[in-house]
């Protein structure tokens, strides 16, 4: 094989390796408990500019038209983690220095320092909370809409839980190991 062809092949292999790596911008939660306990986890992130508020776990929403917007915290869940498993709970560049996590752990323990209430549902959910707005002018008519999802049967059940503030600082990728 000619030298440059070899080099090209090596680079192509390197490219393949890089392309199979997970995205660098993400938030990950891992279950590293030594006692074998499993857990369900949630993650809440800041939305500085959203036009749609998800108000429950059924898909019901309230929206406005740009340039109007809401500010909100979106709480999302659940991810079920067995021993030595991780979940990528947010797959975009982190946009705020703070996020909030919660873990429901099978051994009955809870995250030390968790003190910030968020609402959760028993089903897969993404619920906007602590919202404010709408902001922004809407020269002329302000048109907002509401929509309805499908709650299914039985309807979701809700709780308030204490989440733990996580100082994500300016890192583009952040991992939390719960032990």
């Amino acid at each position: 094989m000619k030298p440059l062809t070899t080099l090209t092949a090596a680079l192509a292999f390197g490219v393949l390796l890089f392309s199979t790596e997970p995205s660098l911008a993400q938030f990950t939660i891992c279950n590293t408990k030594a006692n074998g306990a499993d857990m369900y986890v949630t993650y809440a992130y800041y939305e500085p500019n959203t036009t749609t508020l998800s108000v429950d776990a059924c898909g019901n929403y309230t929206s406005v038209q740009p340039p109007q917007y809401f500010i909100a915290w979106r709480n999302t869940g659940w991810w079920h983690l067995k021993k030595n498993q991780c979940a990528t709970v947010y797959q975009q560049p982190l946009r705020n220095t703070w996020g909030y996590i919660y873990a429901q752990i099978s051994d009955g323990s809870s995250l030390v320092g968790a003190d910030t209430p968020f609402q959760v549902a028993n089903t897969e959910f993404a619920i906007d909370q602590y919202y404010s707005g709408p902001f922004g002018s809407c020269s002329g008519e302000c048109v907002g809409t509401s929509g309805y999802g499908d709650c299914g049967s039985p309807a979701p059940t809700y709780w308030y839980v204490n989440t733990l503030p996580i100082h994500q600082k300016s890192y583009s990728s952040f991992k939390v190991n719960i032990y």
Partner: peptide
């Protein structure tokens, strides 16, 4: 649950852009 986003734990060293926090 969001089962699709779950993977096995792999310890990786921190870098300038990534950080791991033990809780």
């Amino acid at each position: 649950t969001h089962a699709a986003d779950v993977h096995l734990y792999v310890a990786k060293p921190d870098t300038k852009a990534t950080h791991t926090l033990r809780i």
